[in-house]
Design a protein around this nucleic acid. Structure first.
Lengths: 211, 211
DNA sequence: ACTTGTGAACCATTTCACAGCT
DNA sequence: AGCTGTGAAATGGTTCACAAGT
């Protein structure tokens, strides 16, 4: 990719990939922007803009070739070689994520999990070996782990993020409600579940929701 | 509130609330926009804009009164009376959320959980009674539940959303990767964990991340 | 007739720059 | 000197409207 795409565009491309996979499995050969848009929950123009950005390859009569488009999108957003992921924090959410991910993203595999509770280390949960957090740096370096998922209590978030970053991690998915201050070359994506619930609660009380 | 605030503003107000609670507990009486901004991970101007929107009440010398501001924000974003929440889908993620929420948001209480697996109904998990999904409508109506959290497999998402909406739910937190098509008066907030991880993976491979 | 691709317009949000108060 | 509040500018993202291809 010549230019870096915006986070929203990247997000939508993952939606399209999902939809296209479904279409391909059901034997669809072509799809028009309108149909793709409806399945992904966005507008048709938006779809065309996004696809334009990765070198639009639609036919002016039949729309887009499902297989061809899918491969193009995968080529843009999926890693060529698998990326290794570490999970820090084996609370309920952390354990849920361990079972949630592996089946879906074979190219992003959680290869190590960490917790400060010694009772949790040494075990294997859902195929993922759990270690004491003291081993974090050595194992992150050893496995060449480039992504981190943080599901620790808020107070420990910044510290864990710094340790991950200094051990070579380039991107962090942060489930804690704390903002992470890290070098600019580490990308951070926040998922603040409580904030999201607060938003839902707020708008559910408004009468005139236009979103 | 006269005008409906944007989703981003509402989100940031919840951040400020969190930070202000911490400051209050630590005995801080006043806080300047710059400090609040750093703790919330945004800019100082952003903070002032947001607070302006709810009727800025900062002193031109000492900044904002912590307690006073906290109460103002709570008055704007928190429900006056508690809102009841239903959780649909008792997989790993659903169960993790059951243990995650209650301690944090006393005014948003998950009062019922549903699953299609009969083995899961009749039990109480983390203080929350679990029911067969067939009882969804009657219990949602009976409890006056106004918010729903959906953590079912993707294929069941749209159906569950419709059932929740027709039973009177006004806002839905959607953890499935499917877009929900619902009447415009139901607010939907999506948390697409897999998409977020894909974004992290994508940007972690870019060299020039400016976010 | 129905499609994509796209300049231009539009809208939302953030940032700049500074007036005004203490 | 240091703060908030805010008009105005800038940025970023979405939608409109339509040219051009089949």
């Amino acid at each position: 990719m010549a230019q870096v795409m915006s986070a929203r565009t990247v997000g939508r491309l993952t939606l399209y990939r999902r939809v296209l996979k479904g279409l391909k499995d059901s034997g669809q050969r072509h799809v028009v922007s309108q149909a793709l848009a409806e399945l992904a929950g966005v507008t048709a123009v938006q779809v065309r803009r996004d696809l334009m950005g990765i070198g639009g390859l639609g036919s002016n009569s039949r729309g887009y070739d499902v297989e061809c488009l899918l491969e193009r999108i995968i080529g843009v957003i999926e890693p060529v070689v698998a990326q290794q992921v570490a999970l820090v924090g084996l609370g309920n959410l952390g354990r849920a994520l361990l079972t949630y991910f592996p089946v879906r993203r074979p190219r992003l595999r959680i290869v190590a999990a960490f917790d400060s509770d010694p009772a949790k280390s040494g075990r294997v949960i859902c195929g993922c070996p759990c270690h004491d957090v003291r081993e974090l740096e050595s194992l992150v370096r050893g496995h060449g782990i480039s992504l981190g998922i943080i599901t620790v209590p808020g107070g420990a978030a910044q510290g864990m993020a710094e340790r991950l970053a200094s051990a070579g991690v380039r991107g962090i998915l942060n489930f804690t409600p704390r903002p992470l201050r890290l070098p600019a070359d580490v990308y951070v994506e926040d998922i603040d579940i409580t904030m999201s619930l607060d938003k839902v609660a707020y708008y559910s009380r408004q009468d005139n929701v236009v979103v």
